[in-house]
Every structure is written in C-alpha cells, then in structure tokens.
Design a binder for these strands. Sequence first.
DNA 1: CCTCAGTGTGAGTGGTCAACCACTCATACT
DNA 2: AGTATGAGTGGTTGACCACTCACACTGAGG
Lengths: 188, 188
Amino acid sequence: MSTERTRHLSTAEERRETVLRTAIGAFAARGYWGTTTTEVAKAAGISQAYVYRLFPSKESLFVAVVEHCFVQVRGSLERGAAEATGSSPEAVLRSMGDAYARLIVDNDLMLIQLHAQAAAVSEPAVREAVQKGYARVVEYVRGASGGSEDEIQQFFAMGMLCHLIASIGADEVDAPWSRTLAAGVRHY
Amino acid sequence: MSTERTRHLSTAEERRETVLRTAIGAFAARGYWGTTTTEVAKAAGISQAYVYRLFPSKESLFVAVVEHCFVQVRGSLERGAAEATGSSPEAVLRSMGDAYARLIVDNDLMLIQLHAQAAAVSEPAVREAVQKGYARVVEYVRGASGGSEDEIQQFFAMGMLCHLIASIGADEVDAPWSRTLAAGVRHY
DNA sequence: CCTCAGTGTGAGTGGTCAACCACTCATACT
DNA sequence: AGTATGAGTGGTTGACCACTCACACTGAGG
C-alpha cells in the first residue's frame, strides 16, 4: 500500500499542508497585502494557478495559515506546561513562556501573528480567526496555569512586547532603550 | 468678480502637513502595503499626482506619517507626566498611561504604530523610523518617570497589549478571554 | 493495455498599482 | 500689462496583481 517513494503526485491534502507550512515563510516578510500568491506558490514549489485549486482565495489561504500558527503556539504551550517543574502558577507560566521563546526562534511564526493582527483591522475573516485563536490560547493558559487574571494578562503583554522586539530588530540594537525593552526576554 | 470661483492655494509645506494628518486615517485601515497612494490623495483632497510632488515616494510618505505619530505619542506622554499627582515613578507612569489611553481614543494613531511595526519587518526605512521613535519614547519615559527597568518594560508591554486588544476588537467581545486581556485597560 | 479521476500547469484575463510628465492656472512682482 | 514661479491636475505607462480556464500528465483499477 505504501508507494510513497515512487509517487510523483501528492494528494491535494498533502499539498495543502505543504503550502500552509511554506506560506508561513512567504507571508512572514510582508504580511497579507504585501505578499503575492505567486510568492506563496514559488515557496511551495507549485504553480500560482494551483494555489487556487487548493484554496478558494488568497484570504482563505491566509486565514488557514493563521489558524495553523495558532495550533502550533498552543502545542508549544502545552509542551511547556508539561515540562514545568512544580505546579505553582508562576512555575507553569515561566515554563510556558520558555517554551514559547523556543518556538519563536523561528521568527516567521511570530511575524505571522503580527501580520495577522494587522490584517485583522480590516479583514473580518482574519479578525475572526485571530479572535478565536487568542480565545483558545488564553483559556488554555488560564486553565493549565491556574494563574490570576493579572498574571495571565502579564503573560500575554510580555508576548506582545516580544513581538515588538523581534519585528523592529531591537535585539540587534545595542542601546539603553533596547536593553530595557528586551531585559530578561529569552531569545534562543 | 461676478461669479466667485475661488481655488484656494496652499503652500507646499501646509499641504504636506494636511497630507500627513489625513494620511493617518488612510494608512490606519490597511497599513503600508494595503493602502494606495490614490486613497491617501483622496483623503487629503488632492490629486494622486500631487502626492508625488510633496513626497518622493510612497515609502517616504509612510515614514513621515510614522514619525508624525511618534511625535504625537511623545507629546501625549509629556502632558501625562505634567499632570501626575505626586512624583513617585508609579504615579507618573500611571498618569502617562492614562494620557496615552486618552490619545488613542483615536484608534488610527495606534493602528499606525501597529502597521509601522509590521512594515518594519521588511522595509528598512520604516524599521529605522520605528526604532528611533521607540528610542526617544523609551528614554523619555525612563527620564520623566524615574521608574525601574522592570517598571518601564511593563509599561511598554501593557502598551503592546493595548494594541492587540484594539486591533482585533477584543474590547467589543464579551467573553472571559477578552475580559482577562482587557482587564484594567482604560478605554475612553 | 486502456480508462478516467484527480494532480498540475501555461497562458491568459481585466483590473490596479506606483510613478511620471506635459500641461494649466493662481498669485506675486515688476 | 507682462512675466516669473510655484501649486495643482489629467492622462498615461509598464509592471504586477488576484484569479480563471482549457488542457496535459500521472498512476491505480480493471
């Protein structure tokens, strides 16, 4: 049954996953409006026309990419929670933060979140995806850590600060202001 | 002088300022790549061609808009610092945060910051403007508040969380996750 | 071997983009 | 009145955009 080695064609489902994975890198640089479907196709190694057989529109492709990223973020936080030493909210949150820091060594994953946030302003479908993504992530963090409202809010505020630092390359600037913003922010 | 048909001419400098102010609203919705120079021109009430007499390129226009926004943010923080009751770092920071919250009642000003952050990823000129903007703002907050590194970092982390809440409209969602994120975040 | 459903593409479509240029008009100053 | 200068525009351009469609190719089941 397994004929994977000799198979030249992929199933549409396999292709869709490839496109989703590679589209992250494409959208990460210039976001929803700045990235062309041709760039996405090139990154996935298929023709631009075939992108439109796999996804009905550029918007739905981007939404799928955003959802894919949130799944990965949640997975990373779950691993972090599992690795926590101790069960105090603080210990679990620290371990989760650490896991997230390791996840976004791949900057692209984080940049997608930033660009999704930007696109959410005026693209309702994107906004809905981002809202649902944060809904699940916030509820997961609350449940798994048992942290207070304040602690959870702090956790996400720190995540947003992380996005700022990476997006403007503050961690590559050697200055007091950048050191203040990036102080204690893990970056593997 | 029977049929009055006045065509009011401004100086180029006046026009440039008009364009900067109105372009904020144009860029706020769809950011750098999603906004056309025609939209900017329409918002300013001039022809698209004239945008290019006032600014050498779309990029330099966007950079000017971003710089303009940072100036307003700094001005708002200065007013906040002046209004502070007491001179403890905590009191000054709280007053500054409050002033910022009042400033971004106009969502556009905040959305520009978000879109500037997104554009900074791959547009070096924008990145430089945003870095310089945060450099000045962080140093100002440090100097005016005298807060610790941690307090200042917290201050900006909270600002970033604010941007998230507004960009995805979390404050219009009635759910536990959105209440957790927005708890205590002033919104006039 | 043939069939055929599903994978995949080349070659477009109409529309829009940033940028440019030749030009008109309003005003200030002779 | 004439002239110089700068404000402001209509029209255009070539590149590029999202999206479409007719058609070619592949390989598993018969």
